[in-house]
Simulated assay, not measured.
Amino acid sequence: MADADLDAVIRQLAKQHNKTILAAAKKRRDRFSGMAVKAKDKDAKERFKMLAREVVEQANAAARRLLISADNAADSYARAMRQAAAAELPKKPEKKADKPAEASPGKPPAGKPAKKKPPAKAAAKRTTKTAA
Rank of each mutant, 00 (worst) to 15 (best):
K38D: 15
M50F: 07
P105F: 03
K112E: 12
A25R: 08
R47H: 14
A44P: 09
K15W: 01
D30W: 02
K49P: 04
R126I: 05
R64E: 13
F32H: 10
A36V: 09
E88C: 04
P109S: 13
A132H: 02
P109E: 09
K27D: 03
Q12F: 12
K27L: 09
A8E: 13
K42R: 14
E54T: 10
A122Q: 14
P119V: 04
A25P: 06
K99L: 06
K19C: 01
K40W: 01
Q58R: 08
V56R: 06
K116F: 04
A70D: 07
F32S: 10
N72D: 13
P118M: 09
D75M: 09
K96E: 04
G34I: 04
P90F: 01
E102A: 06
K91H: 10
A61R: 13
K91R: 15
M81L: 08
A84L: 12
Y77C: 10
A73Y: 06
P93T: 06
A44C: 06
A124W: 08
K27R: 11
A59D: 02
A110Y: 00
A62R: 14
E57C: 00
A4L: 15
K121G: 03
A39R: 10
L51M: 12
G106R: 04
D75A: 13
A114M: 03
Q12E: 14
R82I: 04
P108R: 01
V56D: 05
R65M: 10
S76N: 15
L89E: 14
K91W: 07
A120W: 10
K26W: 08
L6W: 14
A61G: 08
D41R: 12
T127M: 13
F48L: 04
A123G: 10
A24L: 13
N60H: 11
A74I: 05
A63N: 08
V37I: 04
R126F: 03
V37R: 11
K96N: 03
I10Q: 11
K27S: 11
A25G: 00
H17I: 00
K112C: 05
A124P: 07
R28Y: 00
M35C: 11
K92R: 11
A2N: 15
D71S: 15
L67F: 05
L66C: 12
E94V: 07
M35E: 14
P109K: 14
A74R: 04
D3T: 15
P118W: 08
K112I: 11
L89A: 15
K99P: 02
A80C: 13
K117S: 01
P93M: 12
A84C: 07
L67M: 07
A23Q: 15
Q16L: 11
V55M: 05
A132W: 12
A122C: 00
R28I: 03
A14Q: 02
M35I: 01
T127G: 02
R28K: 13
K99Y: 02
E94G: 10
A44G: 12
I10R: 09
L51C: 02
P113Q: 10
A85L: 12
A86Y: 04
K38S: 11
D41E: 12
R47T: 15
R53W: 00
K99A: 11
V56E: 01
E46R: 09
L51T: 00
R82K: 13
R28V: 02
K107F: 03
K49M: 09
A4I: 08
